[in-house]
Simulated assay, not measured.
Amino acid sequence: MKVQESKRAIIIGATSGIGYEVTLQLLQQGWKVGIAGRRQEALEALQKTDCTRIEIQALDVTQPQATEQLQQLIDKLGGMDLFLLSSGIGYQNMKLDADIELRTAQTNVEGFTRMTIAAFRYFQKQGRGHLAVISSIAGTKGIGVAPAYSATKRYQNTYIEALEQLARLQKLPICFTDIRPGFVSTDLLKDGKYPMLMSPSVVATKIVKALHHKKRIAVIDWRYAILVFFWKMIPAWLWKRLPVRS
């Protein structure tokens, strides 16, 4: 389905993986897209594919200046209707390397919070908008092989829930979408073997559809929706005994 040319999306973490594929699909549907990420060369390479409808801005979500750089990107694009946060990191860390856990929290909590606040405030001032984030099904349970990753994803789930309530209290017509993929074949999952692995392009198609329908929570895909439904029912005493590995 085509959308009006005036629709403008900002995607943080667009140089690879899911963010990259979503960018391509929104462009195909007629959106103007502002893309951001840490790698300037990768941003420039993507911009060359459609110079008239892509604006770029290098930024690192863990740095305080990322908020100002986001605003610069919005200005380049001429506004923002959709904000999609696709940047995040995660590792298997059964040895509990503290540096890995803290680095994960820095990106997935500190960086996430910084960018979602900036997007919320922009939409608050504008009086409308669609704020979407890519979290994970890992946020629904504490997974022993990846403690910080699952904990930070739970934080993201709860934070978006709280922002939605805040928007309602302030009578703001802001739409929220929490996108929860299962295992996706990206650089993020280079450290293990994973079941039901999905391609980024297939996942992106489902994400774009969920964004179009403004779904509040989108578990990608139906197999993981069934999995999450049943593992939420597992009591704590049993969950801690399960040999969840990948």
Rank of each mutant, 00 (worst) to 15 (best):
Q170I: 04
G88Y: 12
N93P: 09
E101L: 08
E101I: 06
K209F: 07
L85N: 11
A236P: 10
I160R: 07
A105F: 04
A98G: 04
F120A: 06
L102R: 12
I35F: 07
K171D: 15
Y122T: 10
L131W: 02
T116C: 13
C51G: 08
P200V: 09
T49K: 12
M1G: 15
D50G: 04
F112N: 09
M196K: 00
V203L: 03
E44V: 10
T107Y: 10
L131C: 08
L172V: 07
K2C: 08
G192I: 06
P200K: 04
V184S: 00
A42K: 15
H130E: 12
A210I: 06
W237E: 11
I74R: 01
I10V: 12
S86F: 05
F183K: 00
Q47A: 14
Y159Q: 14
V203W: 04
R128Y: 13
K48C: 11
K215G: 07
F229M: 09
I137L: 06
I220E: 00
T104V: 06
L242N: 04
L85C: 07
Q126P: 05
K7R: 15
L169K: 13
H213M: 09
A119Y: 12
R168M: 13
I179P: 03
G182D: 00
I137H: 00
T205Q: 15
D75Y: 06
V228C: 11
Y224A: 11
I18G: 04
S135N: 13
D191H: 02
Q28V: 14
I179D: 03
R154F: 13
T158W: 07
G34D: 09
L82Y: 02
V145K: 03
M1F: 11
G139L: 06
W222A: 09
